[in-house]
Amino acid sequence: MTNAILTGLMLGGMYALIAMGLTLQYGVARIMNLSYGEFLIAAAFASHWLFTGWAISPFVGLALVVPLAFVLNFAIYKLLLTPLVRRAPNRDALEVDSILATFGLTFVIQGSMLALFGGAYYSYSFLAFPVQFLGETVAANRLAALGITILLGLALYAALTRTRAGTAVRAVAVDPFAAQLVAINVPQASALTFALGGALVAAAGVLVSTFLTFSASSGVVFTMKALIVVVMGGVGNMLGCLVAGLALGLSEALVASYVDPGLTLAVNFALFLAVLLVKPAGLLGRATR
């Protein structure tokens, strides 16, 4: 039982980290990014390549991959998504357009990765030894990933609530029009937040690659889980993200160890629907629409 709960918490922490980037991209930049999981897998491949080709530890790899992802996502927002933002007459139209554009992007990225790496599953062994933690045996790489996740989450939370830029970002999330009235450069804030979300998912990709096997086509599952966590927690809500991620991870681990590992996705969806039916705005979200 403790083992299942511990596994669930670690899994949940990972889901929360994966979803944090998306909640920024969707909640602030208003981009519903369906190619999100593809960016995660791309970062995982980058980390794999750095580790096996150049013997660079994934923790050092983070320092290389994350800034690169930030720049790349900034460019994507500026080049690909700004035309859509300009064209859209309202928020719903932007949502539809961004869904379509990023859906197309999914296939471009996935196809590129398939062409580069093939359809095989990849993994590498990094910190793959057992350690004792709270009386249970867990893998060191998972524990390390969880530690970094917590650090990243705390840093992000502090940045959003304690700094000027973070306050501006939260203002844009609440109301992009009113934010302009208090001299916030909304397009700039949106672009930077989108890029920050991209950097976070790259970090998640590097961390995930240390303990999970992945293939060029496994991005969809991560997109799916991130979307579920974001909506369940309340769009744009960091704390909700954490709560929903942990709930998802726990339920998955419990079902996998007590019912059947083949039914985890079904449990995800059941939980998702249950939350939507009871609280359509998400666990910690406020009903705005």
Partner: peptide, 30 residues
């Protein structure tokens, strides 16, 4: 279950529906 709500939830659900049904079919067959 989804069309009573905003359109985004519908999109998300249909995005995962294929994967969900596939997993259920595999689970049932195995």
């Amino acid at each position: 279950s989804t069309l009573r709500l905003s359109g985004v939830y519908f999109v998300i659900f249909t995005f995962g529906l294929t994967e969900l049904i596939r997993q259920l079919v595999v689970w049932f067959e195995v």
